[in-house]
Design a protein around this nucleic acid. Structure first.
Lengths: 335, 335
DNA sequence: GTGAAAGCGCTAACAG
DNA sequence: CTGTTAGCGCTTTCAC
């Protein structure tokens, strides 16, 4: 509770509050001399302007928000999020903007969170885990809160977007597996109302020509296991499974092994998001890395531009790269 | 920019601003009737009080801060942090408190961050990655910002602490390895100025009786590899290595293998923090899980209590459990 | 039980 | 170039 206020500094420097304010913000010309006096006084008193007072006066919070409506388990096991946040922070740091993180448990709380945030707490928001026809988009539009949508979004929108091509790596994986002789290729997706899960699943179905071997998971290990069990119980079981994240892939791998299958000989497996340990598994897991930090940086930059009044833009950050590893290595013989 | 303010609600309800304020906060008795009118008006106008105005008036930001001075690489590969944050959020959610996350790159920025935060932006802070004689402790004391120290802290302090017993799992691991016949046991620690790294290293040295086989790493894969190389080059090389996190352990494991060693036959290996994939590596990695979410919850509760004026307390969250897996399995014969 | 009015600490017209 | 004066939207005495 630094008691020193702008008034103390003004007194110390022998000027008025307004002068102090402007000397520091550079919002109007100030003589070099008074500027120096003000700086000296501020320094001497160790004064830091109150963010809440400034926020109230300028209606700018100097903070942006990320609201997460995720299961704690999924948060903890997600390799995307921390790296994404690190990317966001690296650009926020340049402008001393803070990141407000809020985890909510239900939609009601989420809506309240956005309403509160938009009212003096944050200057903008980053929307993650977009769903088809996401209800948050009209809400944020109504609240007039600058927003950047992270992840594909197909509806026309007036918000900035950070996109990536989720379909390309899926096609690349399928091509690779086909070349290795696989004909029964399955896909365990994330929840299909997530736009990016849907994009991957659509790419899969389009390329394979059927959704017979598509199963919907929810990114947890449990769902990876269960969907794998279903697929392997099929009369004509798949010889390769593409999972929409590494956690499900590994759970699937374990289950397949417990059934006596050998990976990749009997079943090829690939993940998504390339957890930093995936390359060290045995067999090393084929996965798709996507540079979450780069997407975080892009999102933060777009949001900052938006807050400063720039027109919304869509930026495609294309950094998906498939790492082919042993879990999809070519099988020596047969089908 | 919801234009509606408390004045609009007051007008709509036919009362004054003060009444609206009190009706909602319950800060003074209000007749059931006016209370209902106020609630109806607020609902009708979709009004949410401005956080910045409220913060200014009450000098309470309804937010707490976590400042991270970490390398982005370390952030992205850390399995502790996301789960910890999830735990923190789960208790903050109860009181609609937000979490302000700030990542800084140098000490100067970190100090500025704390000064700014303490001045209207946050009501308290969580200190992670404590170092011996941490400079942030006196700073936060000076700023009079309620703070909770997460991780052991040996200096006397007037702040609340969340502790865990880092020594016990180290002793348990050593005992296990000794029982399996290991006599040359090494430890690759984290940076030794971190209090928790130091605690583990001290426990190691105390139990082993020498620091000959102690090497200081920095939690990155590169350092895990390098320290392992040094240890394996020793004339009388260790037969077991305890690493202070899983990332270093896996890097060490890879390096040892590249030298033709077999794990665990020629070299037993254990990690720390129990990344969610560690159990799935091959061999499965022995590691120590520590329930970061529980520590996050404890820290958030202590901080909230502190902000509300409770006396500082130290809470020991003891949830370290060693998961013995194949990477330290008993060797059939010899030394 | 409710109203009126005085701030919280800063910024931003408007004068000079 | 600098000082004066209002607010920003809320909370909180102090009266009634």
């Amino acid at each position: 509770m630094s008691r020193t206020t702008i008034a103390d500094v003004a007194r110390e420097a022998g000027v008025t509050k307004a002068t102090v304010s402007h000397a520091l913000s550079g919002n109007r010309p100030t003589s070099e001399e008074t500027r120096a006096k003000v700086l000296a006084a501020a320094e001497k008193l160790n004064w830091v302007p109150s963010q809440s007072a400034r926020a109230l006066a300028t209606s700018r919070a100097n903070a942006i928000a990320v609201v997460l409506a995720r299961d704690p388990e999924v948060i903890a096991n997600d390799s995307f999020f921390p790296a994404f946040i690190a990317g966001v922070e690296s650009v926020l740091a340049e402008t001393e903007t803070a990141l407000l993180l809020q985890v909510v448990t239900d939609q009601d709380a989420e809506e309240r969170a956005y309403r509160t945030l938009s009212h003096g707490r944050a200057d903008g928001a980053l929307l993650l885990d977009l769903r088809a026809d996401d209800w948050r988009v009209p809400l944020l539009t109504e609240l007039a809160l600058p927003t950047v949508l992270v992840g594909a979004y197909d509806q026309p929108t007036s918000f900035s977007c950070v996109r990536t091509d989720d379909a390309a790596p899926v096609r690349e994986l399928i091509a690779h597996l086909r070349a290795a002789g696989h004909e029964r290729i399955a896909h365990v997706s994330g929840p299909l109302d997530y736009v990016h899960s849907r994009a991957r699943a659509d790419a899969f179905v389009a390329d394979i020509g059927s959704d017979e071997l598509l199963r919907e998971g929810d990114f947890t290990a449990a769902s990876g296991r269960d969907r794998t069990e279903e697929l392997l119980a099929l009369p004509d079981r798949p010889t390769a499974i593409l999972y929409s994240n590494d956690t499900m892939a590994i759970a699937g791998l374990s289950f397949a092994r417990s059934q006596g299958l050998s990976i990749p000989r009997d079943l090829a497996i690939s993940g998504f998001d390339d957890d930093h340990l995936s390359a060290h598994l045995s067999p090393a897991l084929t996965s798709v890395s996507s540079d979450p930090a780069a997407r975080g940086r892009a999102a933060a930059r777009l949001l900052r531009a938006d807050i400063f009044g720039a027109d919304p833009r869509t930026e495609v950050v294309d950094c998906n790269v498939v790492h082919f590893r042993d879990s999809t290595a070519a099988r020596s013989a047969s089908a």
